[in-house]
Write a protein that binds this DNA or RNA. Sequence first.
RNA 1: GUGGCCAUAGCUCAAUCGGCAGAGCAUCUGGUUGUGGCCCAGAAGGUUGCGGGUUCAAGCCCCACUGGCCACC
Length: 391
Amino acid sequence: MFEYTITATDPHTAARTGIFQTPHGALLTPVFAPVGTQATVKTLTPRDLADLGATLVLANTYHLYLRPGTALIQDFGGLHSFMGWPGPLLTDSGGFQVFSLALMRKLDPDGVTFRSHIDGSLHRFTPESAIANQEALGADIIMCLDECADPLDRRYNEEALRRTHAWAARCKAAHRRADQALFGIVQGGIYPELRIESARTLRALDFPGYAIGGLSVGETKEQMYATLDITVPELPTDRPRYLMGVGAPEDILEGVARGIDIFDCVLPTRVARNGGLFTRQGRLNLRNARYAADPLPVEPGCDCYCCQHFSRAYLRHLFKAGEILGLHLATIHNVRFMMRLMDEIRSHIAAGTFAGFRERFLAGYQAPNQEARHAQRARYVARLKEKEGIP
RNA sequence: GUGGCCAUAGCUCAAUCGGCAGAGCAUCUGGUUGUGGCCCAGAAGGUUGCGGGUUCAAGCCCCACUGGCCACC
């Protein structure tokens, strides 16, 4: 179980294709996992997901632990049967959400105590309970409890890294189910020495796969790419590498080129629900007045149900009118866009033409305004700190 | 017909004693990276119903007109 077979390597980059065997099916990598936080990819049925070509779906342990409870899902035969998704599943540990969503958190060497963002009730995660929760959910790939620090705070990262490494060892020791692959998570912010130390420490624990966490959380894209450049080479080549929380189409290309095999991200589905539609030219904001009478499909040539049957004008109307169908159709398109992108990436790696494909894609793809992104991020962080009383 | 109340941004409404005309929604634009359809940021939008008057200064006070609502014939 959990054999990872490399099927092709790109001659010009670190990109590779592979097959990762799981109890619920084989994953062709590089693979992108749509996010189904609360045991559902918002607006999509499992049948939609299968039709779109999705193979791996991520669900969040933090949310499912709080509601409806991991024990209840276990009583229903686990997450696969509860949510009606027969394919491979991945759950995170819940650690990240404790730090990003919970109303309060108190760290100690043994774990983290926090208050639910839903009702304020008091809870606690330890490495052992994080594993127990994920064993109850029964996903094919599960994650160690880790601590995601501010990527630009060196001292915090040093401190968080000690906990993350100790917790990784305890997670591995606590993990019993042989039908789940437990991945370790490399942390260390944007600091090369910390990333290298983290990768080596986790590698010594011998996980069936390795995740890179703590990225796409506030650093620049250049810093993220540079961190991948120094981290991936420290990981074993015969195990899948999972870049958590990424990403945008341009980041997928850059990640694959640096040897990443697995991605997950809310971006395609979240942006879809706000009228942002992916195309090869960049993102199209359907709320814009310029599409009010546009008879074209979102992306001419796309084979998705949305593009095959509906105009931009109709989709814009659905969004302006607040109709549910707009969210569904936009999500269908964006997930299909990601799946087609991954298909093409795998084909080009297999054919040895990935480098040229990446270059052409990035030349034609207009990424969102980085200044606006970072300005917003700064405001968000400022609000968070104000909320928590940090000067 | 008589009396009273009202008229401010596309809509619903603020504006202290007469002292730089604002908000929410809608519109327009940008953003969302280990998920709240939430949300965040910015922009545009005004001859304060019309015409006079008083005043250094009027959305606010006075007169007339127009339109609306209420009450009573």
